Amino acid sequence: MYTAIIVLALFVCLLLALVVLAQNSKGGGLSSNFAAGGTAQLMGVKRTGDLLERLTWGFAISLIVLSLASHVVLSGQTTGPTRSVNQQKALETRIPAAPAAPAPQAPVPGAGTQPAATPAAPAQQPAATPAQ
């Protein structure tokens, strides 16, 4: 339903742009070359201007109604506040806990300048390779 409203709104936007471009402006506009040239002879200049003005108002009002309808349809589909994609990603992202910094070792009295002894690591045995 929401997609249909958006497609319809885009179509109304296109028609609104064409009607606005077809109107006479102070400098003549595109109306003489684009759309109103043929209709001006058929209906008269005054009637063409009235028709284009009414179409402009109709398309503008319908665009407003469609935008409000899209909001109503969208708010009816979701529960809770509507969030942007960035807000959704930020809420879903878990920040890993920072690794704990190693505690500073207290100096050993009487050690002097020699480094503190570290426990010997167990010797690793070489892995046995299968004979071929």
Rank of each mutant, 00 (worst) to 15 (best):
P119Y: 09
Q77Y: 14
C13I: 02
L66H: 00
G110E: 10
K26F: 14
A17Y: 05
S31T: 00
A101D: 09
S75L: 07
A36K: 15
A60K: 04
I5W: 07
V19S: 04
S25V: 09
V12I: 01
I6L: 07
G49A: 13
R94Y: 02
L15F: 12
L14N: 03
S32Y: 05
Q23R: 11
Q132V: 07
V20S: 11
A120R: 11
A103S: 08
L63D: 08
V108F: 06
L21A: 12
S70M: 14
F11V: 13
L63T: 09
L8H: 13
T118R: 02
A103W: 08
G80N: 09
G112Q: 09
Q23L: 08
A9F: 08
L30K: 01
L68P: 12
K46A: 14
L74H: 02
A111K: 09
A121E: 08
N33P: 03
T93Q: 15
T56G: 05
S32H: 05
G110V: 02
T82K: 06
A35D: 13
W57V: 12
K26I: 12
C13M: 07
G58M: 06
S84P: 00
T56Y: 01
P126L: 03
E53V: 08
V12K: 08
M1L: 07
F34M: 11
K89L: 08
L63A: 06
G80M: 06
P130V: 06
Q87W: 10
F11Y: 13
A90T: 13
S84A: 07
G80S: 13
T39L: 10
N24G: 06
Q124R: 07
I5F: 05
L42W: 12
A98Y: 09
F59M: 14
P119N: 00
A69R: 00
I61M: 13
Q125G: 10
L55Q: 07
S62Y: 03
L52N: 12
A117E: 10
A106R: 03
N24M: 02
S75A: 11
L14V: 04
L14W: 07
P96D: 01
R94P: 03
P122N: 03
G112T: 11
A100G: 00
I5C: 06
V72C: 12
L14M: 02
S31R: 01
Q114W: 10
N24Y: 01
Q124L: 14
A22D: 10
G38I: 10
A98D: 13
G44L: 12
D50A: 13
L15I: 06
V73E: 12
H71W: 11
G27D: 05
Q88I: 08
E92G: 00
R47A: 01
L42E: 09
I6V: 07
L68N: 10
A131R: 05
A106C: 05
V73I: 13
A60V: 10
L14Y: 10
L74E: 05
L91G: 11
P81T: 07
Y2K: 06
A9D: 05
P96M: 02
L68Y: 11
A69I: 02
L21T: 04
G29E: 01
A9Y: 12
V20Q: 15
S84V: 11
R83K: 08
V73D: 10
A103Y: 10
T39A: 15
L52T: 09
S67E: 06
A97I: 09
P81S: 03
G76A: 03
K26G: 15
P99V: 02
P115R: 05
A106L: 04
L66K: 00
T118W: 06
